[in-house]
């Protein structure tokens, strides 16, 4: 699946940032993943455990924060988080929406020493 390349990109960013900040060890990496992305945290962790050896992030823990699906109603403008896959505006019952959130994939922060 596509987590291998994602994990490579992740590690590259972590190494660059660690280098910029002059740190020698990264112990925790916090990653934000939207609920609509196809990315599987367990897969990222799996690849990361192999790739991180011999890097500044060797043995680091990955912590994932999942962001919910967030939709905006195209009829009345209401922003809402649907409780299920039934994407219906709670204010006006319109099913016509724009996806506002849930597609994120970014590194939020890391703990270093």
């Amino acid at each position: 699946m596509h987590e291998y390349g994602i994990t490579e990109s992740l590690l590259k960013i972590v190494e660059d940032k660690a280098h910029e900040a002059g740190v020698t060890k990264v112990s925790v990496i916090r990653i934000v993943v939207g609920a609509l992305t196809g990315f599987v945290p367990e897969s990222i962790q799996f690849y990361f455990d192999t790739m991180c050896k011999d890097t500044v992030a060797a043995g680091a823990t990955l912590e994932f924060e999942e962001l919910p699906v967030s939709l905006r109603c195209r009829s009345c403008g209401q922003l809402f988080e649907p409780p299920s896959r039934e994407w219906i505006c709670p204010a006006c019952a319109s099913p016509e929406v724009t996806i506002e959130g849930g597609r994120e994939l970014y590194i939020k922060e890391m703990e270093v020493s």
Partner: peptide
């Protein structure tokens, strides 16, 4: 131990 804020998209390189 300290924190570094990053907020960088993992797909930025692809973009």
């Amino acid at each position: 131990m300290r924190k570094i804020e990053i907020v960088q998209g993992i797909l930025d390189a692809n973009e």
